[in-house]
């Protein structure tokens, strides 16, 4: 399948390994990535907090760019982009006069126009809904046997459920578990799977922010997870990049590797950890050793 691909700012900035690992696994899943290299930041909720219309116009621009491509749908690899863009799309799609007014600005300033009803999915959703777990399973060459993985959804890809289309037919809040199992891993049930990483308040209340990150990481440690996996690079920043500080805040050693979703898929597809950028993580994924110590050990 061919997707209009929006990697988001962070995956091209502080978590380049996310963008890189997605690029590695896409061909293995027969996904053709048409990167939206002229698209803009989703606003991460902050621009909407500042000015709703501004956020809606900027994201309408991204949607319009996606609609210019010859693709099946728009795909992102960042929960925060998913959540922020879905919020804007909800308003744009719900009300024609409002959408018209946004399009008026958009047309005047960019020549673009957004047409109601874009399909914009996080890679996680694409994996389960468009590629399918059977297909995914069939491409696994190195099952993650004995690897105990804690899913870390974060917030933007699971709440609010109505806006994100989570219902009985689309139990998107269970997809991480399904994917981990399809890749041959073991799902670890721990308290933090659906909680907040704390990133949005890192500049306002660092203690609270890192208490969140540290608590969830600690819960995963206590549940004997080998690693966490997340569909959100911003969660990754607080859980991995900030982990040394979080350890100080919660007063315990954590040493919990945190993988991006495409990295986990890539490992099961037989890619080298280094090729997936796992050497770029702050917390070395050396504990991800159960299935073959040598491979992941070299990532450290």
């Amino acid at each position: 399948m061919k997707v209009a691909y929006w990697p988001g700012c962070v995956s091209r900035g502080f978590t380049p390994e996310l963008h890189g690992s997605m690029a590695q696994i896409a061909p293995m899943l027969d996904i053709e990535l048409v990167e939206l290299d002229r698209a803009n930041c989703c606003g991460a909720g902050v621009i909407a907090e500042h000015n709703m219309e501004l956020a809606d116009t900027l994201n309408a621009r991204t949607f319009a760019l996606a609609q210019q491509t010859d693709t099946d749908l728009m795909m992102n690899i960042c929960s925060t982009c998913q959540g922020s863009q879905s919020e804007c799309q909800e308003r744009l799609d719900a009300n024609t006069p409002y959408r018209d007014s946004i399009n008026e600005t958009l047309k005047a300033e960019t020549g673009l126009e957004y047409e109601r009803g874009i399909v914009n999915k996080n890679f996680l959703w694409v994996l389960v809904e468009d590629i399918g777990l059977d297909e995914l399973r069939s491409r696994v060459v190195r099952p993650l046997t004995n690897l105990k993985v804690g899913p870390f959804y974060g917030c933007y890809v699971v709440r609010p459920t109505d806006r994100l289309g989570i219902d009985d037919e689309h139990p998107r809040d269970t997809y991480m578990q399904q994917v981990i199992e399809a890749l041959g891993g073991t799902v670890i049930d721990y308290a933090g799977a659906y909680k907040c990483c704390g990133f949005p308040i890192i500049t306002m209340n660092q203690k609270a922010s890192l208490t969140m990150a540290g608590t969830h990481l600690g819960d995963a440690v206590d549940a004997q997870a080998d690693c966490l996996v997340t569909p959100c690079p911003l969660c990754h920043l607080n859980l991995d990049l900030q982990q040394p500080v979080a350890e100080k805040v919660v007063g315990r050693e954590l040493k919990m590797p945190v993988l991006h979703l495409p990295q986990l898929v890539g490992l099961a597809f037989g890619l080298e950890p280094k090729a997936l950028g796992m050497n770029k993580h702050v917390v070395r994924p050396t504990s991800v050793i159960d299935w073959t110590q040598s491979v992941v050990g070299s990532a450290a």
Partner: peptide, 16 residues
């Protein structure tokens, strides 16, 4: 209907 329900429907591409 809330249009985002449709985001999960496969038949809708970015052009729909």
């Amino acid at each position: 209907e809330p249009v985002l329900k449709a985001a999960g429907e496969e038949e809708r591409g970015p052009h729909s």
